[in-house]
Computed example of a mutant assay.
Amino acid sequence: MTAADSAGDLDRALLRRAIELSHRCPPSTTAFSVGCVIADRDGTVIAEGHSRRDDPHDHAEETALKALSPDDPRLAEATLYSSLEPCGHRASRPRPCAALILETPIPRIVYAWGEPPVFVPASGGKHLADSGRAVVQVPELAEEAREANAHLAGP
């Protein structure tokens, strides 16, 4: 994974939008509240999502990806922004978000907060990076991303 230094102003702005979306999630004691934004190569938002938007088991990345056709040509140069590291394991559905992202050509993933081991082991970022995707964590925004989940992760 690359260092936070490689995150520019556009990355921070779109990651903050994902964090805003995380605050729209219906509360849950069994899942994190996460927001996701997918932007094309120019930084134009082409899809957004948040946890539990359409179904109690939906993850943010899953809802954003559903808005796009898997063969959408914009995905080949897109960036996916998530307030929380995409999951590498999942209790509620068979395919974790990292696997769903790998089914697309999205080459770059930016997230704020590394997934704490509250529900499943954190491994999504590593899995994406090991699969050749560029993965950037922006830890200076982690506390903002954590706020929507303070009831799960503690103060």
Rank of each mutant, 00 (worst) to 15 (best):
V136W: 09
L21G: 03
G8V: 01
E20H: 08
I19C: 02
V120K: 00
H151G: 10
A153P: 12
T63V: 11
P155Q: 12
L84C: 05
H23K: 12
D42K: 03
P94M: 10
V34S: 14
H57Y: 09
G43A: 00
L84K: 04
T63N: 05
D130Q: 14
R16T: 15
V118G: 02
L15I: 05
A18E: 03
G49L: 08
V118S: 02
V34T: 10
A153S: 15
A47Q: 03
L128Q: 05
A64W: 04
S83C: 03
T30G: 00
I19D: 01
L15Q: 09
L84T: 09
I38P: 02
V120N: 01
A47W: 04
G124K: 13
G49K: 04
C97K: 00
P26L: 07
H151T: 07
G88C: 04
L68S: 14
P155C: 11
D11S: 06
H89S: 13
A145G: 11
Y81V: 02
P155G: 12
L14W: 04
F119A: 10
E103C: 07
D55E: 11
H59L: 02
Y81K: 03
G154A: 08
L84E: 04
D55T: 06
S6C: 15
L84F: 12
L100G: 03
A3W: 12
S51V: 03
A3D: 15
A13Y: 09
A67N: 11
A112C: 07
A60V: 00
S51G: 02
K126S: 12
G125Q: 08
E61F: 00
L10H: 01
H127T: 15
P73E: 05
F32P: 07
R74G: 11
Q137W: 02
R12P: 05
D11L: 06
D40Y: 09
S28F: 08
V34W: 11
G35Q: 07
S123Q: 06
V37Q: 03
G43L: 00
H89N: 07
K126A: 14
H151N: 13
L152M: 11
P96Q: 03
S92I: 10
P155W: 13
A148T: 07
T2P: 05
G154C: 06
E140P: 01
T79L: 01
I38F: 02
T79K: 00
F119C: 14
P107W: 01
N149K: 11
D5S: 00
L75A: 08
I46T: 10
L68W: 12
V110G: 06
D9Q: 14
P70S: 07
P86T: 02
P26D: 05
L152V: 11
A134L: 10
P139Q: 10
L80S: 08
V138P: 00
G88T: 09
H59A: 00
K66T: 14
A145P: 10
R133F: 04
P107V: 05
D130K: 11
S83P: 09
L102E: 13
S83E: 15
R12A: 08
H127G: 11
A134V: 15
T63D: 07
S28H: 09
P27E: 06
E85W: 11
D42I: 03
P56T: 01
D71W: 02
L14H: 08
S22N: 04
M1G: 15
A91V: 08
V138S: 03
